[in-house]
Design a protein around this nucleic acid. Structure first.
Length: 258
DNA sequence: ATGACGCATCGAATGCGA
């Protein structure tokens, strides 16, 4: 079974890329972030025609918005973080059957935070606190749990192209990394690091200043799995191919194979 | 230090991303 996370930076602008990518990579579940559209504008028909008739959609105008596209039915779809009031559409969770039994998938578009010390950064910290409490409860209910999405956090220095120059800046602060570590303490593990990976592996590159061409990137899109699933993980890979296409998303898709 | 690129917004200049 394959599950993918991809921040598409507007599904309106990226629908053809999504369809092209799915045609070449027929994964079981595709989790999207930054739809930047309302539910009524979600291209259900085109996505169903591509083989994904089961969609959980939590859209929002202009910003944010997440969705889960699945070949198999989704059960118990829950939007946002239970117990944390949020104006933004940032999280969607659902249960799907897999060969190893059912899996609970939580798909998140984590808060960016803009700048340490800002009001947006304070919101990021509150949001991460809410997410952690929510996942503690989800972990109790679901032995097989996947948390994936755009975390907007580099877990370690090796996940950034310039950990020295960018020290303590957004995505690199001690506070953000502490929150990431607290997710691991629930029993989740960063599946990308279960395997040998190329040096300087990133999932996002700035549009500006030839970021991709110079591989000036960050690894901020992650797939974590619960303790129970750790032994099932066959691979976790970043697909850089669509980042080379015309008018790409600035993020690459990341795929878990179990 | 700033801006660079891209996307969205009732239509142009601005907010936001990371």
């Amino acid at each position: 079974m394959k599950i993918t996370t991809w921040n598409v930076n507007s599904l309106t602008a990226r629908l053809q890329h999504v369809l092209d990518w799915l045609a070449a990579n027929p994964v079981d579940v595709l989790c999207l972030q930054e739809l930047k559209l309302t539910d009524d504008k979600f291209p259900l028909e085109a996505i169903a025609a591509a083989g994904y008739p089961h969609c959980g959609v939590f859209g929002q105008k202009t910003y944010n918005g997440v969705a889960m596209l699945s070949r198999a039915p989704l059960r118990d779809v829950v939007k946002n973080i239970t117990g944390f009031a949020d104006e933004h559409s940032r999280v969607i969770a659902a249960t799907v059957d897999s060969p190893g039994g059912e899996v609970r998938i939580v798909n998140g578009y984590f808060v960016n935070g803009q700048e340490p010390g800002s009001e947006k950064f304070a919101y990021k910290m509150r949001w991460l606190g809410g997410l952690n409490a929510y996942l503690c409860e989800e972990a109790k209910k679901h032995a097989r749990l996947v948390l994936l999405g755009d975390f907007n956090i580099t877990p370690e220095d090796r996940d950034s192209f310039d950990p020295v120059g960018l020290k303590d800046t957004i995505h690199h602060t001690v506070e953000e990394r502490e929150h990431f570590r607290k997710l691991l303490q629930i029993g989740l593990c960063d599946t990308f690091r279960l395997f040998e990976q190329p040096e300087k592996s990133y999932s996002w590159w700035d549009y500006r200043m030839l970021g991709y061409q110079k591989n000036r990137g960050l690894r901020i899109d992650h797939i974590l799995v619960s303790e129970r699933m750790r032994g099932e993980v066959k691979a976790c890979t970043i697909d850089r191919a669509p980042r080379k296409w015309e008018k790409p998303s600035d993020h690459a898709p990341v795929t878990l194979e179990i």
